[in-house]
Computed example of a mutant assay.
Amino acid sequence: MHRALTSERYWRDRLAEVGGEGAELGHAVTGEGTIDVEMAQAIPAEHLPPIVSKIRPGDLTITRTETWGALVGGRATGTFSARVEGLPGEVTGTLTLAPEGTGSAITLDGRVEVKLPLIGGKIEAVIAEQVVELLDAEHGFTEGWIAANG
């Protein structure tokens, strides 16, 4: 799992598969068992909930970053963030890869914050729901990619 998460090829394949139309890998800097990734993804306006479209018309461009450190004692840690162009908010958090049973598991601890009076909480809930859906899709891709690329 760690070898996949620190492989530039994995990130390019993942973004091509689940990144959406026009997704780009801004950079992937790989060190000895580490990686820093920046991605740009777009969500077409027609796929946005009305509450988001009211305050930010048009397509949304999301810039995401993810880092993974070296594997130490069977564990690795990382960070992630996402920012939406034109919205005063962000998604941030930490990642932990650790052995679990005969495989491994990634634990994610994150938060969504949108700094808009009165409606910020509603938008945070919508974003959190969308992030969970995206993470599920990325999880499914990762399982298949590891099985195919071992």
Rank of each mutant, 00 (worst) to 15 (best):
L135C: 04
S53A: 13
P50A: 14
G26H: 06
D109A: 07
F80K: 04
A40E: 07
A40P: 02
A40H: 13
H27R: 08
E133I: 12
V112S: 06
P50Y: 06
T61W: 08
G86T: 07
G120N: 08
T61S: 13
T34N: 00
N149I: 06
E100G: 03
G110K: 05
W145T: 00
E90C: 10
F80Y: 09
E21F: 09
N149Q: 12
R64K: 13
R83E: 12
A42K: 13
S81Y: 02
G121C: 03
A28T: 02
V84E: 12
T34P: 01
V18D: 08
E8P: 10
A147M: 04
D136M: 09
G110Q: 02
P50E: 15
E90P: 05
D109T: 10
Q130M: 10
L97I: 04
K54G: 07
V132I: 14
G31P: 01
S81R: 09
P88L: 03
V112N: 03
A147P: 02
R111H: 08
E66R: 14
S104K: 01
E38A: 14
A16M: 00
Q41L: 13
G120K: 11
A128S: 10
A128E: 11
E24G: 11
A82W: 10
E21M: 08
T65C: 10
V29T: 08
G69T: 03
I146D: 03
E21V: 12
R75W: 04
H139A: 10
G120A: 06
A70C: 00
I51Y: 09
T107H: 11
G120H: 11
L87H: 02
A147S: 04
A45K: 03
G19A: 02
P117G: 08
G26L: 15
A42C: 06
A147D: 05
I55A: 04
E143D: 15
A82H: 04
V91L: 15
E24Y: 01
L48Y: 11
D136W: 01
A28R: 00
T65W: 04
I55N: 04
I35W: 00
Q130K: 12
K122M: 13
L135S: 06
G78T: 09
T63E: 01
L108C: 10
T30Y: 00
R64V: 07
F80P: 01
A98E: 15
W145D: 10
L5W: 05
V131T: 12
G69C: 07
A148R: 05
T65Q: 11
Q130W: 01
G121V: 02
T6S: 06
E133C: 01
V126P: 13
T96A: 11
W11G: 04
W11K: 01
I43D: 07
N149M: 06
T6G: 09
R83H: 13
E85V: 14
G33R: 00
Q41D: 06
L97W: 01
I35K: 00
P88E: 03
G86L: 08
R75Q: 13
T63F: 06
A125Q: 15
R111Y: 04
S104Q: 10
R64N: 12
T96F: 03
V132G: 02
